[in-house]
């Protein structure tokens, strides 16, 4: 694998790094807010994956113009459209998660998972 193909896959490397970063944060962190941040990073890596796969070599924005050459290639707009939906889902998930955290903090006075579990065991 030469340097060109490595650099050509730059976006995919970023996707993998972000995906693993986010996943690790979700698993390793006990703070509920940080868990949500981890989930967000994890989801964003997938958004990037989708947007990247829509790219066509030499392709322009998928808008037909009079002056364009007959063999003009266009990028695939569908994957961006799909990911718009997934972004909305991600926003809804984050909003719901934050709302739940507010209620957890009201009830327990803490957003650290280990402290909450101790409080639960005592009750």
């Amino acid at each position: 694998m030469d340097i060109n193909s490595l650099a050509g896959l730059f976006n995919y490397w970023i996707v993998i790094v972000l995906m693993m970063t986010g996943f690790y944060i979700v698993i390793a962190r006990g703070n509920l807010i940080k868990t949500v941040i981890g989930l967000n990073i994890f989801q964003i890596s997938v958004f990037l994956l989708y947007i990247t796969m829509g790219r066509v070599d030499q392709g322009t924005a998928p808008i037909i113009q009079e002056a364009a050459q007959a063999d003009q290639a266009y990028s695939n707009p569908l994957s961006s459209v799909l990911i718009l939906t997934a972004i909305v889902v991600g926003v809804a998930t984050t909003a719901l998660a934050l709302a739940l955290i507010v209620r957890i903090r009201e009830d327990y006075g803490s957003i650290e998972e280990d402290e909450i579990l101790i409080l639960d065991r005592e009750s």
Binding site: F23, F42, V46, L49, M53, V89, T93, L100
Partner: peptide, 30 residues
């Protein structure tokens, strides 16, 4: 008071599951 916490834990697991599904669907589309 454990209900929001249970929902949150389900949310985290469920979102990971759904995102995995999304990755799989993306690769199949590709």
């Amino acid at each position: 008071r454990r209900a929001p916490l249970a929902a949150f834990q389900y949310l985290v697991m469920g979102t990971i599951g759904a995102t995995f599904l999304l990755i799989g669907i993306g690769l199949l589309y590709q």
